[in-house]
C-alpha cells in the first residue's frame, strides 16, 4: 500500500533572476513499512524532496499524495494539521525545544493533538523507555549528550504514530557507535511497529541498513534499488 506517491514533482527556486531547478520531475512511490534512504551528493535535491513530502514546502508543479491525500493544494493550516497527524521529523541538529524537558518534548506533539493527560504521559514515558532513555525523562536537552538528544527526537517523531517519519541526515552529528545504535533502534521500531522511515543521507551506515536506496542526481532519480533482506 502506497503511503507516499509523487507524480512529476518539480521544484524551482528563483534566485534573483536565475531559476534554479532543485527537482526535475520526480515520480516515486513509497509503501507502508519501508525503511528507505534518499542518497546522492550535496545539491542533488534530497532535502528538497523530503521537505515536499513532509509538507514543509510546496512544489512548483506536480502532485504529492500522503496516505492517499493530495497535499499540493492544501492551505497552510491544513498542511500544519497534516504534519501534526501524519508526519514525524528527525533533524541533523536534533532541534529539541531547549526549554522543555525530554518528556515534555515528546509530549509536545500530543499536546497539540489534544490527547488526554494520562494517555499522553503514559505513551511518552513508554516511548522514552523504548528508545533507551528511562530515568532521563526530566532532563533538559542541554543536559543530554548528542546521541541522547537524537533519541529524544526519535521518540518525539514516532510517539504520535505518524504515517511517515522523515529523517534528514540524522546521524551526521553523531560518532559512528552512537549513530549505529540509533539506526538499529529505528530499524527495530520499523520492524516491530511498521513505522515508515524515509532518510536523506550521505552516511554509509544508513545506506547499509536501509532496505531501499533511491539515488538522486541533479534533481532526478538515477537509481532506485530495493535490497534483498
Amino acid at each position: 500500500m502506497a503511503i507516499v506517491r509523487t507524480e512529476n514533482l518539480i521544484k524551482e527556486y528563483h534566485q534573483q533572476s536565475i531559476v534554479v531547478a532543485a527537482l526535475r520531475g520526480i515520480d516515486l512511490t513509497i509503501n507502508k513499512g519501508e525503511f528507505m534512504a534518499l542518497v546522492g551528493p550535496s545539491g542533488s535535491g534530497k532535502t528538497t524532496l523530503l521537505n515536499l513530502i513532509g509538507g514543509l514546502d510546496t512544489p512548483s508543479s506536480g502532485r504529492i499524495w500522503i496516505a492517499g491525500q493530495e497535499i499540493g493544494s492544501l492551505s497552510k493550516r491544513k498542511l500544519s494539521a497534516l504534519r501534526l497527524w501524519k508526519v514525524g521529523f528527525i533533524f541533523q541538529e536534533y532541534n529539541l525545544i531547549p526549554v522543555l524537558s525530554a518528556l515534555e518534548n515528546v509530549e509536545y506533539v500530543m499536546l497539540l493533538q489534544k490527547i488526554p493527560d494520562k494517555e499522553r504521559r503514559e505513551r511518552s514515558v513508554s516511548v522514552l523507555a523504548e528508545v533507551g532513555l528511562k530515568g532521563l525523562e526530566h532532563r533538559r536537552p542541554q543536559e543530554l549528550s548528542g546521541g541522547q538528544q537524537q533519541r529524544v527526537a526519535v521518540a518525539r517523531a514516532i510517539v504520535s504514530k505518524p504515517s511517515i517519519v522523515l529523517a534528514d541526515e540524522p546521524t551526521a552529528n553523531l560518532d559512528s557507535a552512537t549513530g549505529g545504535a540509533l539506526l538499529d533502534l529505528m530499524r527495530d521500531l520499523n520492524e516491530r511497529h511498521q513505522v515508515t522511515f524515509i532518510f536523506s543521507t550521505h552516511d554509509a551506515m544508513v545506506m547499509k541498513r536501509a532496505k531501499r536506496l533511491v539515488q538522486l542526481k541533479d534533481g532526478q532519480i538515477v537509481n532506485d534499488k530495493i535490497k534483498p533482506d
Binding site: 525545544i97 526549554v99 522543555l100 524537558s101 518528556l103 515534555e104 509530549e107 509536545y108 499536546l111 497539540l112 489534544k114 493527560d117 504521559r121 526530566h138 532532563r139 533538559r140 542541554q142 543536559e143
Partner: peptide
C-alpha cells in the same frame, strides 16, 4: 548551566495553552 529544578517540578496536568505558558515562562 540550566535550571534542573524546573524540569522536575513539571506538573502532570497540562493543556495546550498551559504548555505555551510554560514555554513562555522558561524562555
Amino acid at each position: 548551566a540550566v535550571h534542573m529544578a524546573w524540569g522536575q517540578t513539571t506538573s502532570a496536568r497540562s493543556s495546550t495553552r498551559l504548555v505555551f505558558w510554560r514555554i513562555a515562562f522558561r524562555n
